[in-house]
Amino acid sequence: MNFSIYSAWEIAKKEFYEYLKTKRLIIIGSLYIAGFLISVGILSYYSSHSPEDFSSIMASAHSTVSIFYIILPITLSYDLIVRERSRKSIYLLLSKPVSREEVIFGKFLGVLMIILCIIIPIATLGHLIAILYCGFPDIESIARAYAYIGVVILGAECYISFSMLFSIITKTTATSLISSLIIGWFGLNMFYPITTIFNFLSGVSSKNPWYSKIAYAISPSNNMGAAQRILADKLMGIPTQNIYPISISQSLISLVIFLLATFIVASLMFRRKELN
């Protein structure tokens, strides 16, 4: 494959720069930042001011804004390709020496850069606020807090890739947004409850048969719950393995598979897409 990382990087930088000027990033980004930092501030203020509280403060603060870890990537990537098509800029872009794979990867990278630039500094600032109130926690707590962010970012990548796929398939930005939100967010989450109801009605004795595990693993938001478990394991002092249908490592593998699968499908579809 004739792939140039340089071209993809140039596209990513352009996307990044263009996004900085968009209202939706300013609005959603500000809501996330305000929500997270205010949560950390309030939780820290009302905590027992002990370093032991660090993990619970971070777990609760992240839970408060967890919806943004899904909304942010979807709203930033639902129109990546369809917008290029509707404003006709796709013709100028693809008339340059760039492959369609570079365009896809560049755009993905651009949105990812934006998300990284929001989440990592804000999470770090949140950590500092918590440390300021509660004192310095042990290294393991800090490592788990950053592992949480790592999982959230992996989940966000899944939603970027998934929304990008819809931005290739659909013809309008509105359809792409609605499809990404309904299917990506609600639709994929429905499989596991359906299998649970099915198991209950059919009297399946095993709590989580193989198809229930797959139904759970298919949703990135379920798997992003692994991030919460990384912090919860520390809080509860016991692994949360038996509470969830799949383990943390299985959740992480599921996220990686979901990301790769949606990204490959998006690339293949865009490669043969007719741009009339």
């Binding site: 352009k14 720069y17 263009e18 000027k21 968009t22 290029e84 404003r87 006709k88 800029s89 796709i90 013709y91 100028l92 008339s95």
Partner: peptide, 14 residues
């Protein structure tokens, strides 16, 4: 190649 399409679209915010 230098290409000028019939329906021309730029990045309007740039």
């Amino acid at each position: 190649i230098g290409f000028l399409p019939e329906e021309l679209g730029f990045y309007d915010t740039l």
